[in-house]
Simulated assay, not measured.
Amino acid sequence: MPTISNKGIAMPQSPIRKLVPYAEDAKKRGTKVYHLNIGQPDIKTPKVALDAIKNNDIEVLAYSRSEGSEEFRTKIAAYYAKNDIHVSATDIIVTTGGSEALLFTFGSIMDAGDEVIIPEPFYANYNGFSTASGVKVVPVISKIEDNFALPPIEEFEKLISPKTKAILICNPGNPTGYLYSKEEIQKLATIVKKHDLFLIADEVYREFAYDGLTHYSVMQEAGLEENAIVIDSVSKRYSMCGARIGCIVSKNKAFMATALKFAQARLSPPTYAQIASEAALETPQSYFDDVIEEYVERRNTLVSELQKIEGVRVANPKGAFYCIAELPVESADDFAQWLLEKFDLNGETIMVAPAAGFYSTPGIGLNQVRIAYVLKKEDLITSVAILKEALQIYNA
């Protein structure tokens, strides 16, 4: 019988999607499921992006350039300039989502057996991308009691070995919602320059910064031109998850030339989605102002409601639209499945993402869940009421 590769066997399941069959079964039983498990915003995609697809007169849906159309990349550069990030079209490669951007980056800078240091908890698919690339994730633990701030820089330094090629951060963070300060970015800049490492920053949630705080990009840090790599995407910014358009941004010429070879091997990013994404860049600031106001209200509602439940501890996110909550249960995995299989309150239940899958250290985060506040305020209040009742029954 033909055998499956060791790499394939080692590929982790998505903690965000692995409970989907249980959710589907619950819906078939007539139970309403509130989806707190996935970062799929309910915010409408900008009309200008949808109109660009509806109103174009393409007769042949042809390949684009492997690095993305020059017009689109030029407009992306102009978008960055508005955010005090100064790059040119040649510093940008358009990818099929931020996921492909990460795969191309790992493939370009790391060989099998090399290491990347990542503060955990981190976006679960980093585990998958590293496994696919034969790369080892070396975690440095951030803690809920510190609101998941950057761990002390000495903790990073202890982990650097001859195999270390990069430090990877998500800013603002998925799953924590933590927004790194300028000072924290500068500490990382110092250590990557000292040890000749890359600093990869997944900045797909850049727009979502709250409480008067502003996002500071690794591309804004002077002297980091050879070290900094930004991963970006239209998915969350414009509520266009299905477009699958992202990009790599870096001023390191050798890295970009290498990443382009990976881009050429998969031919080109999708043409229609580039058209929509290019149009989305015309989205007025008022759209983001409204969206941020909405998310701040949702965050405040969710956090304050969770804090009312005895035994629940929650970090207060300063960006993105996720938070990590620690529950009074031994296994969040078991509890999340139980919610879908065996529990409902007046015909309704919730779906959460067990947070252990956002760590690579075994045994950490077993009683934590990630909650995405991508539902309207009333639904979040209902969801937390369901959670409170569920915890009482589950623990009884």
Rank of each mutant, 00 (worst) to 15 (best):
M219W: 03
K194G: 00
G357Q: 08
Q307A: 12
G8H: 11
A356Q: 14
L103I: 10
F148H: 11
V352L: 14
A78P: 09
R299Y: 04
E203L: 08
E348I: 04
I350D: 02
L366E: 07
V140F: 03
T96P: 01
Y123R: 09
I141Q: 13
I160H: 04
I4S: 10
K261Y: 02
D289V: 09
C247Y: 15
T349H: 11
A273C: 13
E157D: 07
D146S: 13
K187Q: 15
A332T: 03
K18N: 12
I76M: 03
K342I: 05
Y287H: 03
I386N: 05
Y178W: 02
A254K: 15
D290I: 03
A390W: 09
A89K: 13
D211E: 07
S233A: 13
K82E: 14
K236E: 15
G107H: 09
R299Q: 01
D344T: 06
A222T: 13
A124E: 12
F122S: 13
C247S: 15
Q186M: 09
L391R: 11
M240K: 00
K187G: 02
T164R: 13
Q264H: 11
F198H: 07
E294F: 10
P46Y: 13
Q337A: 12
E120L: 04
E203W: 04
A355F: 09
V116N: 01
